[in-house]
Design a binder for these strands. Structure first.
Lengths: 126, 126
DNA sequence: TAATTAATGCGACTGTGTTGCAATAATACG
DNA sequence: CGTATTATTGCAACACAGTCGCATTAATTA
């Protein structure tokens, strides 16, 4: 079950995502929120927002879960096979536009694909 | 720096991987080792084996790192863009043969691609 | 065989994320 | 508006993967 009540914390989290160009981990998100927002609350909000299809999540380096707003995802076909890029130097994560061609497998039914590309971002390359 | 000495624990770990059809997390690996093999030792062996290019690692669900033997990877071009599949029901992880077509990006230099496909394996589908 | 040093075991410690529970506050309804 | 309902919150404790320092053990070297 997802978000049903409009609370201060919910608004703060949504604003943080709207203002962010990149994907955010719970940790990064909390750094952008007032210090008095509870850690558990943040995790619970992220869960609910994901249930509602408002954000999607994926794992990046160091076993850190990142979240980003779902922009052009048709909620019906909510598969998220688009790729994410993480810079090995600054650790920043961005959502890419590209959909990834998921190989067809005859032994498995693929419901979801997580693609994380890693390398150097433009800023860290120069 | 990687593995240099041939120890009992090293042999046990390598045997476990050779006998496994699927990829193993540190946890799963430890279940297949004698109980007296220390947890830290397992993690350190995995690190060394990865440094040496003997195994490769990737993240699966629940923030768990999985490891598998590198079979046909040319050590020179050690990029590991091949996909992995994880069953949402039994959580088993396998290495797939398929290489994934990595999209070319002009703003980023991609050094590595991690592709995790999720769904149902043949056993869990019936 | 002795010296060197990689590997190990242990225990304590991170850091991410979860949970139970009581208190608080957003909504629904009269 | 005032009250009842219940979603949300804060807190503290917890779970778990993985790391680290350090003293001990054991594989290799000479």
């Amino acid at each position: 079950m997802g978000v049903t009540r409009k609370t201060r914390n919910l608004e703060l989290v949504l604003d943080a995502f709207r203002n962010a160009q990149e994907a955010l981990s719970a940790q990064l998100l909390m750094e952008r929120l007032p210090a008095d927002v509870n850690r558990s609350t943040v995790y619970r909000l992220l869960d609910r927002l994901e249930d509602d299809g408002v954000v999607h999540s994926f794992l990046a380096s160091e076993n850190i879960k990142f979240y980003a707003l779902c922009k052009e995802c048709p909620p019906s076909v909510h598969v998220h096979s688009h790729a994410h890029f993480q810079c090995n130097s600054c650790s920043q994560v961005v959502c890419l536009e590209q959909e990834v061609v998921v190989p067809t497998l005859n032994q498995y039914r693929v419901d979801e694909a997580q693609v994380l590309l890693k390398g150097q971002c433009a800023t860290c390359m120069r």
